[in-house]
Amino acid sequence: MKSLDELDKLREKLQAEMRIREGQPDTRVTVAMGTCGIAAGAREVVTALLEEMKKRNVKGVTITQTGCAGLCHYEPLVEVEVPGGERVTYVHVDGDKAREIVLEHLVNGQIIKEWTILKK
């Protein structure tokens, strides 16, 4: 059972981690969250990303959201931008793919090219 006491302990742990990581740029993971993205399952993608990042103890990643990208037929879309690296857009992402993206791209640094459409 989650409690506010547990949140206090989590805060202490995160404060210590923030001190270690201070000044280092974060990897940015952006999920398109327009009506089309939401209808296609973008919320499940966000929760899957969060859960897998926690499971794999992934640090230094910010999950953010944006509106419709104009590629409604490719939704849900997930864009990953590693500091100093290329921006990669994954398409037709679901919960399973989101977990795999965390493992392969964020943890192992390997782009899953067959799931991507655009690179900028």
């Binding site: 059972m1 989650k2 409690s3 506010l4 547990e6 949140l7 206090d8 989590l10 805060r11 742990k13 995160l14 404060q15 923030m18 929760t47 990303l49 969060l50 859960e51 990042m53 926690k54 992934v58 990643v61 910010t62 999950i63």
Partner: peptide, 23 residues
């Protein structure tokens, strides 16, 4: 206020928040 400077959108916090609300 309870997080005292730790961003609310830190993944671990969001996971905690979701579970807290669900439970």
């Amino acid at each position: 206020a309870r997080l005292r400077g730790v961003p609310l959108d830190t993944p671990e916090v969001l996971i905690w928040l979701r579970q807290y609300l669900s439970e």
